[in-house]
């Protein structure tokens, strides 16, 4: 799928950016999403539903993310949609449900929502067979605050699953570092060296940093990294070889894009482990 000057380029926070290279001979970043689904044997199942979302909400209105479980190499995916209908009672959930109806029920029974900025949903290779996605994730922001709270919501439950600070890594280092170091999962005081394992130097040169606190781990998202840094991520975290081959084969054609690399981490016996890592693009 070639790039064109109609493409909008969005980061995971739905901010638009200028592509960093001219668009001639480039391809769209969503090719990586389709290839990841193909690699996991999920393309047949998800091709039509995802294109249905794209048709209903518009091209380059949504974010996709692909995650690799470092233990099992299993893939999982996330979609994020900007709630551009904040006046409607369910916001973007309504059109999203409509788009997915032929294949999946989304958050069945959920019929009232408060205001939210972004709607997220997650799926893995087992999702389609169940015919439903029980929970959605609502990203709620205080106006003017750099912090976002993410709630996982079903028809009967609502739990806080992530609390995120969004900052520039260098300029706001005095806010970023305390946020990272205040951790239930890594003891940076006992081992200052571990900061180098989470603030990964190869990814530090990024445009935005999301510092997230979750119930079972902490997470960082390095937003606005180039394709070279993405390739580093693939190698650093041993992504499946066919995925790396695909990325390498298309690296030059993806040079205009910026990606958002997310790592989940926690300390286990004095070492930092990464349960899941992944990255985002727009589609």
């Amino acid at each position: 799928m070639p790039a064109s000057n109609r493409d909008r380029h969005l980061n995971v926070g739905f901010e638009a950016y200028r592509p960093v290279r001219p668009l001639a001979d480039k391809v769209r970043g969503e090719n990586l999403l389709w290839h990841s689904l193909l690699h996991a044997g999920q393309l047949d199942a998800w091709d039509d539903p995802l294109h249905a979302i794209q048709r209903r909400l518009g091209v380059d209105r949504s974010i996709w993310g692909v995650f690799v479980d470092l233990q099992t190499s299993e893939l999982a995916w996330e979609l994020r949609l900007l709630n551009d209908q904040p006046g409607a009672p369910l916001g973007v959930l309504d059109p999203l449900r409509a788009a997915l109806r032929p294949w999946l029920e989304l958050a069945p029974g959920l019929d009232a929502l408060g205001p939210y900025a972004v709607l997220g949903l997650r799926f893995d290779p087992s999702t389609m067979a169940t015919g439903r996605i029980e929970a959605i994730e609502l990203h709620e922001r205080e106006p003017g605050s750099p912090t976002t709270s993410v709630y996982r919501v079903t028809s009967t439950t609502r739990e806080l699953v992530s609390s995120e600070l969004l900052r520039e890594p260098k300029r706001h280092i005095n806010e970023v570092l305390p946020a990272i170091k205040t951790s239930e999962f890594v003891n940076f005081t006992a081992q200052p060296r571990l900061l180098g394992r989470v603030m990964i130097p190869e990814l530090f040169a990024c445009r935005r940093l999301h510092v997230a606190k979750r119930p079972t781990c902490d997470s960082l998202c390095f937003s606005g990294v180039n394709v070279e840094q993405l390739a580093f991520t693939y190698k650093r975290f041993d992504y499946p070889a066919p995925m790396l081959e695909f990325l390498t084969a298309n690296q030059a054609a993806l040079e205009h894009l910026l990606f958002d690399v997310a790592i989940e981490y926690r300390e286990v016996e004095g070492r930092v482990t990464y349960p899941k890592t992944g990255y985002y693009g727009s589609f």
Binding site: L177, P192, L195, G196, R197, M199, P201, E202
Partner: peptide, 13 residues
């Protein structure tokens, strides 16, 4: 600091 240094000894804050 060199990236390999950070990966070995940390950011030395």
């Amino acid at each position: 600091l060199h990236h390999a240094y950070v990966n070995t000894h940390g950011w030395e804050l």
